[in-house]
Design a protein around this nucleic acid. Structure first.
Lengths: 241, 241
DNA sequence: CTTAGAATGATAGCAATACTATTATATTTG
DNA sequence: CAAATATAATAGTATTGCTATCATTCTAAG
């Protein structure tokens, strides 16, 4: 959807303010009531990020969240069926936001290699600046993605939830990077796997950097971005074609 | 420990029966009472694997497990402080078992490339045959590793638990593969990250294969092993040395 | 063989979780 | 202003994740 708009009329939109026009679109089956449509909804999202970051997803409850925002537990349940759905919302939002950056920042790059490199940079970099266009703190959200996002799909209900379209944004992102890989080397037979490896793997490297520094080279000097750009460029180097 | 024994006297031990002599060693702070030391303990381990596979880790409780094994909830608590500790036990056991295979199956390989290739094969292959030497069903345990193992470290207590040594086996495994990578290409600056990527990443590809086939190339023809052997060999190909 | 200690089982209890349901009170909108 | 809608307050329920206590059984040493 973002993409369509961009392809149709990229020039009339000014990059920086794009998000005041476009809305990050999260699959609407994830919520009962769209949190973007009310103050309470926005507060729920805003403070759920703070609270999950603070106590971790396991200890996070709607009751605690209600307390934080001076609102009632039962009101939150009118927006989200469960805390799991809220996590799905946050992760979907994040992937949509990433996709938006990916499309915008690579749009005008014509060189395939440069384009992929930029995409890897976007997908693997630490989110450090809060772009501040909304009630969502992207820096903290990124921390949640690193620490909790796997829990959104590591459940007994993945199959069903996948059928319901909850993971569409994520899958589209993988596909976008896959296409970039293939445009460099159409004969490479593992483009999807490489793409999904970059995305999930970089989160894992960020996690290791934080909690298990002894089993990653990533740290102050080496970033996951450097590792993955090296990995991908060597893998796609035209050794025999 | 396994390694020491093997290095000292590899010949007097017959591969197939090795595990009747050696015990898979799990860090002993993980349990209150070693489940290997009693019938009840073994039953706990055996049936926890069945039950977690059946209902998923979230819905798994000691009460349900007690029911399954005709034993009491409180008795299970005498072995493990919490279900989280039990998961740590299972994952540690699995990594130790993998390490054991890694050491044995690569021990006599002198060619560095061949050795690494074998190691990747071992670390990324689907566990399909139950080696049947014990009460542990490795095939099911492997499914649990794919679907649940991340939850053993994606918690607010990782730091502490890491300090307590709960992840030593896992980290040692990463280090072993790192060494093999470095023995092929000592100048490669990301050996640890590559090693951890192989191990975690292959679990992820197995997961995708099962639940999100549209974002992986892995399937009937292509296995995660093929993908990773290709990835690693291209990455370590001596392009400029 | 008996007897003490260890292991297991049974029962109870508790605070917290993850909700659902109902009713009351604001707030907005037509 | 009335009606619809959103939010809040309160209560209730089954389950979870434990802890604690006491009773029973098994086991191994004297």
């Amino acid at each position: 959807m973002i993409a369509i708009l961009l392809y149709l009329q990229p020039n009339i939109l000014i990059m920086k303010n794009l998000l005041s026009v476009l809305k990050i679109a999260v699959p609407d089956k994830i919520f009962i009531k769209d949190p973007e449509t009310s103050d309470l909804g926005k507060k729920i999202i805003e403070h759920s990020i703070y609270l999950i970051d603070e106590v971790g997803f396991e200890s996070f409850t709607f009751k605690k969240l209600g307390l934080k925002i001076g609102s009632n537990e039962s009101s939150i349940y009118r927006y989200f069926e469960s805390k799991h759905k809220l996590l799905l919302y946050l992760t979907s939002w994040y992937w949509a936001w990433l996709e938006y950056q990916l499309v915008i920042e690579t749009f005008s790059i014509s060189d395939a290699k440069e384009k992929l490199e930029k995409a890897i940079l976007i997908a693997t970099r630490t989110v450090e600046e809060d772009s501040n266009f909304s009630h969502i703190n992207e820096t903290l959200l990124y921390k949640i993605i690193v620490n909790e996002s796997s829990k959104s799909f590591l459940t007994k209900n993945v199959q069903e939830e996948n059928k319901s379209g909850y993971f569409e944004v994520y899958k589209r992102l993988v596909t976008r990077i896959e296409e970039m890989i293939l445009s460099i080397k159409p004969s490479y037979p593992f483009a999807l796997s490489l793409s999904s490896t970059i995305i999930e793997g970089s989160l894992h490297q960020h996690f290791l950097q934080e909690h298990f520094p002894s089993i990653t080279n990533c740290g102050k000097e080496i970033t996951p971005t450097i590792f993955y750009i090296d990995l991908v460029s060597k893998t796609l180097a035209n050794s025999n074609e």
